[in-house]
């Protein structure tokens, strides 16, 4: 799917069909991301709808958006944070503690049954990562964003993204090492 082309068709051609395709393309990822913040699916849907509505109203200035996917994720994050602050359950500080609880299980062929325990240990290690680290990990892993993109979405430096991913890598490496020692490798 050529996002830039659709973006042009929406910005200049006011093409509702192109707009619909963009909506369908991004909807799931965006709602899932919003969900990690607000934890209410209905609210998450509303935030995504707001963001999508906005890109239609941007008209030609939509062409100025260089990476639409990053732009949308960033906008959803802002929308979600605004919601959390407005609902007064959160202070600005708390926002950093927001992180996804669960991760989709990676696809693995039959071999996974052999290493079920290892897989479970990995999942446990991931769930025990610090919140912000978990958020970075999710964006890289589930949405295949690059360092730079994650940094733009979460409003942190690329070095910080790197640091978070290294933490994740070390924890998983530890899990593997322990597992191998126990099973006598």
């Amino acid at each position: 799917m050529d996002i830039t082309l659709l973006q042009e068709q929406v910005a200049l051609g006011r093409d509702e069909n192109a707009y619909k395709r963009l909506f369908l393309h991004f909807y799931k990822g965006l709602t899932r991301f919003a969900d990690t913040y607000v934890r209410q699916h209905e609210v998450a849907e509303e935030i995504v709808s707001d963001v999508m509505l906005k890109i239609w109203t941007m008209q030609e200035s939509l062409l100025g958006v260089r990476n639409l996917r990053v732009y949308l994720f960033r906008a959803v994050r802002n929308g979600a944070i605004n919601y959390l602050l407005k609902s007064r359950n959160y202070t600005t500080w708390d926002i950093d503690q927001v992180a996804p609880d669960t991760f989709g299980s990676p696809h693995t062929p039959e071999e996974e049954t052999i290493h079920r325990e290892l897989k479970r240990n990995f999942a446990e290690a991931v769930s025990q990562l610090p919140p912000k680290c978990r958020m970075v990990f999710k964006l890289v892993r589930e949405d295949s964003f690059t360092y730079r993109e994650v940094a733009a979405i979460l409003d942190i430096s690329e070095n910080t993204v790197d640091r978070h991913l290294n933490i994740a890598m070390h924890r998983l490496a530890d899990v593997l090492q322990t597992y191998r020692q126990r099973s006598g490798h």
Binding site: G104, P106, H107, T108, E111, E112, I114, H115, L118, K119, F122, V126, V140, R141, E142, A168, M169, L172, A173, L176, Y179, R180
Partner: peptide, 15 residues
């Protein structure tokens, strides 16, 4: 190495 493969897929679930 199947076990490294599992760790790899934690980062790149693939497809």
């Amino acid at each position: 190495d199947e076990q490294l493969a599992l760790l790899y897929r934690e980062f790149f679930p693939g497809g």
